[in-house]
Design a protein around this nucleic acid. Structure first.
Lengths: 314, 314
DNA sequence: GCCGCGTGAGAAAACCTTTTCCCACTTGAC
DNA sequence: GTCAAGTGGGAAAAGGTTTTCTCACGCGGC
């Protein structure tokens, strides 16, 4: 039995008698034969391997994206190198070089912020690069959440359940997503209540509520928070003031970070950026590029989804 | 210039004139030559790739372990396939097969619980397997945190700062770590206060404090909590009751999950399991095994470290 | 002046697949 | 019976690297 015959039998290629083919397959299964992906890759120029580059240390954004990528690609036999590069350009370069040496079919770059580049230039690689939740280069394919639509979703929901004085407590104004969410907030809620910019922490949420409630005049009847941590801090501050959530004030967060959103009392209604779906699409896209299928460059905004828990009432 | 001469020049092997060697190296650098790791691996039987298998969806344990592995192995040119397998045996098998096909040099299995196996049998693979933070098989190498020592660290600290009535609020008794921590707690603190077993959530921490404070008689002056989430729930409950932390009650958590521990008010003193170090050692061990260096099988317990923040006072 | 040895460089095999090409044999038709 | 066409199987090359083996040449010693 020659090697080539065996190969053709297993791959259903070439011409041969069906009983020969079956026999080869049976014996291969018996001895547990598995082709060596290295050798196969050497010839086919496809390693069935991609690299995921991230500077998101906590994995809060990366992990769902990774799950989506893996989910989409495991059916295609593709495995994923995860490379956490902090914000270290030298480390990033080492990882990129290592991935290229290993002949990855493509690279997905992901981060923790839409408007930041990774500390390494991926623009002139000979493998396709797709950006997810991080800023891409000219003519690249970039996937991001539609923060404007997400914010709109949240504020519209608050209006729909009858809230009229919606305040917005959010992160630093330098963040692109912050500005985009604030823009949508203003469009839907008008300019009756202020936007409070701060940092992404619980303590800022807490402090912002203090500021709002110390002001004279009518208090807000709803808070749209820039992330779940801020929302959680706000809930705590409201409880301390004796303000009831959701009876007196409705509250919506952003991120749907389970560990924060679901454990808050009451559990937070929040905006989910569908990062897993984002990862899935990024994975399928880099695969398409690796296989030479044409992909239109540009920024793809994926819709967010409102996760309704108990912090809004209704 | 023959291929073999070039190879020998770049690898500093073989006999050749030093000026030839230098010339080859210079030109290689000029044209940006990088050897194909697939071809190299095909011959050397070393792919400089390992697989990390995990069923920890949140990545709370996996991520630090992964960081440690990557940190230790990047210097050796090793990349890591991350495979999240949930608790799905079929998915696990697919990922394991994919990794073996890709000729990984070894596999590190990690999980979210010391006393649970991954839903796939890794015992008869022809590549080395190291277990980290999950139960291994007979004769395997397993790395785990020393929960007993960690708990002792916490309770001794509470005693040292003058607390005498230390209660222990923790997770489900089926967990090995829970029993081990409770054992150490009893050894150090005696049996004056009860151990409250429950679940790993904030709400259980909250409820447990209710239970403790509803009982007649003297209240605890310290709480040793089974994880940071329980501790956080406990802090909230204490605040609601007007009990001051750390003035009236000192409180220690477990896990040092930054996002919970550092954002609690006051920030939690807690026990860190040094998962990154655990990952680092697991990485170096699997590398040693891959290179054929002998490694003593058995369970290696790594010491925990107490992270002092503000929830214990002085 | 010849032989042997040492030195530098290249040829070839090996790693494991896939794919192309070719050969031999069978079968059918005339 | 002969030829053509078609069919089943094998040989060989390719992919990029490392390693072992071989070869040619120059130099020193006798």
């Amino acid at each position: 039995m020659s090697i080539s015959t065996a190969s053709k039998a297993l791959n259903d290629t070439g011409r041969m008698g069906s009983e020969t083919r079956e026999r080869v397959k049976r014996i291969a299964a018996e001895i547990g034969y598995r082709p060596n992906a290295l050798a196969r890759g050497l010839l086919s120029k496809r390693s069935f391997t991609i690299g995921l580059l991230t500077n998101d240390t906590y994995g809060r954004f990366t992990l769902p994206v990774m799950a989506g990528i893996s989910d989409a690609l495991v059916d295609h036999g593709v495995s994923v190198f995860l490379c956490a590069i902090e914000d270290d350009p030298a480390l990033a370069q080492i990882h990129v070089d290592a991935m290229l040496d290993k002949q990855v079919d493509g690279i997905i770059a992901t981060g923790k912020r839409l408007d930041r580049r990774l500390p390494v230039d991926l623009s002139n690689l000979h493998v396709p690069v797709v950006y997810a939740f991080t800023e891409g280069t000219q003519n690249s394919v970039t996937f991001r959440s539609d923060d404007e639509q997400g914010a709109r979703l949240a504020v519209e929901w608050l209006m729909k359940i009858g809230r009229r004085r919606v305040a917005h407590i959010t992160g630093p104004q330098e963040f692109f997503s912050v500005r985009e969410r604030a823009g949508a907030y203003h469009e839907v809620a008008g300019h009756r209540e202020p936007v409070l910019y701060g940092v992404w922490s619980e303590s800022w949420g807490h402090e912002a509520v203090e500021q709002l409630w110390k002001r004279p005049g009518e208090k807000p009847d709803a808070l749209f928070c820039g992330n779940d941590q801020i929302a959680r801090g706000a809930v705590d501050a409201l409880r301390e003031r004796g303000v009831k959530v959701p009876q007196d004030v409705s509250l919506i967060g952003f991120d749907n970070w389970e560990i924060v959103a679901a454990q808050t009392r009451p559990p937070l209604t929040t905006v989910d950026m569908e990062l897993k779906e984002l990862g899935r699409q990024a994975g399928l896209t880099v695969l398409a590029l690796a296989e030479g299928r044409p992909v239109e460059p540009g920024v793809r905004k994926l819709p967010c989804r409102l996760i309704v828990r108990q912090s809004c009432g209704g």
